[in-house]
């Protein structure tokens, strides 16, 4: 690469690496919330309260 294009590539790579890392972090949190929902669902079943499937229609 010539004429400083390596700097342009580096700048854009940093931008999209950090944005993607942030999105992965959001995905990890979503997975954690999902695990908590499952844990609460199991707790409800143990307490004899049948959780519905979320579809009221």
């Amino acid at each position: 690469m010539t004429g400083g294009s390596q700097y342009v590539v580096a700048a854009y790579a940093v931008i999209w690496f950090l944005v993607l890392a942030y999105i992965v972090m959001l995905g990890a949190r979503s997975a954690r919330v999902s695990r908590q929902v499952e844990a609460i669902s199991r707790l409800l079943e143990r307490k004899g309260i049948a959780p519905d499937d979320g579809d009221d229609g």
């Binding site: 959001l26 949190r29 919330v33 908590q36 609460i40 707790l43 409800l44 307490k47």
Partner: peptide, 29 residues
């Protein structure tokens, strides 16, 4: 991109807050 990430984050925050309320209610039953 900022607005989209803000909206997604806020959905997660609402879900976590709702889960905490449910967990607290279950502990008290």
């Amino acid at each position: 991109l900022f607005i989209a990430l803000l909206e997604v984050e806020l959905i997660g925050r609402r879900a976590e807050r709702a889960l905490r309320r449910v967990a607290l209610a279950l502990e008290n039953t």
